[in-house]
């Protein structure tokens, strides 16, 4: 697949935070931190509450601009946040949050939730339908759930829909920010299995943020500790 806007100047594949810093008010949460996620690799990010794990994820997902340093995607430095960069660049990175309820529009059915990012870039309706069905199947959502709205499904079911949505554009990098923290053990293992399968197929890089050392030991290839 060609990726316009990324071909030139590719040096080292991967999603990288290069000497990034970030603050809230006067409080500095990240101070010149480096992080690199190679294609196909699963990196765990661990650290106490407030150590900047979610901030790092938001920087990598281009939701925040760092105060210092930069993010680069497959060797190309990205300047600007999500809506300012070309579609082909921003769809390279997807993010999955801890609380699916806070992250979703309560008016959308689960099917619309999955389809929305495709509609947003003008994908033809029949293609949207087919891909939605395929993704629903991948994450284990049955047809009766797809017509429901968030209030009528469990957290686990909603998180599966969010996972499907995050995979819509076949991202090169998937960031899971405590994405399974509120899920039961079975749903957690299932989400991890779906992510793992997607990763194998598409050689995607994955960042897993978690407080749970046992989960990271099992899921990640290596674990980075934030102080």
């Amino acid at each position: 697949m060609t990726r316009p806007g990324l071909a030139a100047g590719v040096t080292r594949p991967g999603l990288a935070a290069c000497q990034v810093s970030a603050s809230y008010g006067t409080q500095r949460v990240l101070d010149a931190v480096d992080l690199h996620i190679a294609p196909g690799e699963t990196v765990g990010l661990h650290g106490p509450s407030g150590s900047g794990k979610s901030t790092m994820a938001r920087l990598l997902a281009l939701l925040h601009r760092p105060d210092g340093g930069h993010v680069s995607i497959d060797g190309t430095p990205v300047t600007g946040i999500r809506h300012q960069v070309p579609v082909a660049v921003r769809t390279r990175v997807a993010i999955l949050f801890q609380s699916p309820r806070a992250a979703t529009d309560p008016r959308l059915t689960l099917a619309d939730l999955i389809a929305e990012p495709m509609r947003a870039i003008g994908t033809p309706p029949e293609q949207v339908r087919a891909r939605t069905a395929e993704l629903a199947d991948t994450v284990g959502l049955t047809a009766d759930l797809l017509t429901r709205r968030p209030h009528a499904v469990s957290d686990g079911q909603l998180q599966r829909a969010c996972l499907a949505r995050s995979l819509v554009h076949r991202p090169g990098y998937l960031l899971c920010d405590e994405a399974t923290a509120m899920l039961d053990a079975s749903t957690q293992a299932h989400v991890a299995a779906v992510v793992g399968e997607f990763q194998r197929r598409h050689d995607a890089g994955v960042l897993v943020i978690s407080h749970d050392a046992a989960l990271l030991a099992r899921w990640a290839d290596r674990v980075v500790e934030l102080p």
């Binding site: 039961d184 053990a185 957690q188 293992a189 991890a192 299995a193 749970d212 046992a214 099992r218």
Partner: peptide, 21 residues
């Protein structure tokens, strides 16, 4: 037994299939 097997400390294997409606 299947639920315990899903723990990352154990097999990290989801309970097969899905809960019934």
């Amino acid at each position: 037994a299947a639920l315990l097997d899903a723990l990352p400390q154990r097999a990290f294997r989801p309970v097969p299939g899905h809960p019934p409606m």
